[in-house]
Amino acid sequence: MASVASKLYSDDVSLLVLLLDTNPFFWSTTSIKFSQFLSHVLAFLNAVLGLNQLNQVVVIATGYSSCDYIYDSSLTPNGNFESSGSGMPALFGSLLEKLEDFAAKDEELSKEEEHEDRIASSLLSGSLSMALCYIQRVFRSGHLHPQPRILCLQGSPDGPEQYVAVMNSIFSAQRLMVPIDSCYIGTQNSAFLQQASYITGGVHHTPKQLDGLFQYLTTIFATDLHSRGFVQLPKPVGVDFRASCFCHKKTIDMGYICSVCLSIFCEHHKKCSTCGSVFGQSKLDDVSSVSNKKRKAPDT
């Protein structure tokens, strides 16, 4: 890690990887319109770029069945401030164009998939991995690089089936010392994002007033890592640490764990479905489980 640290710029230069939730099923149910939300986000991005010439912003769209890079400020150096004729900075033009393409592609994929019973979650695990890959590339590029951080702007509910992938991403981020900030605008609570921010030392916040989103973004999430040493940021009161089981993808707070590969199950199995280890008889089941007894009754 030392070599990484020495290549950092000394002050507040930051690389912000923004994960934008574009899940249509979420946006069709919210009070705030997607266009309104996007206005706030774009203004925020422009503000971040304005803070320092070396600041860099990458936007990854998190769709329902896919995710993709839709903007990278390092590809259009210095051009962000010019209007592209239509009274809008070039940033917004190219971003929106890409976003539109992305939505179209995502729709195609979603139609193919057709899993009626899947929770309307977005592919957070995918976009987190993409963000980490990008940051890893920046780390390895050898030049001086800005301090990276990830910001998840998420509204869709967690997809318990992504539990393992998301947790793996979180732990990678922790190893890379990349904080994951999360701003959850949905109605439920996101255990994933709470854990992500908690583990990586980022900030998790749930805005109460969505029409003031820009204010939340600038007040909390625009704070660069350098300044975080001097400023108090809001902390959540508690963190939801619950895990999803591997067998039914349910969120559980008590369960069985394979002692070999640490897979989590909500009920007792004879064999680990992940690594094939054969489990012993559960004492608890033997002694006290009624169902177990019932099954056994015909034999005797």
Partner: peptide
């Protein structure tokens, strides 16, 4: 329908620019 709404929003912001006043 859902994707339609989403695309509509994107189109709206592309043509009209950011909502004003932003906040």
């Amino acid at each position: 329908e859902a994707y339609g709404l989403l695309k509509e929003s994107i189109l709206e912001i592309r043509t009209k620019g950011l909502s004003y006043p932003l906040i």
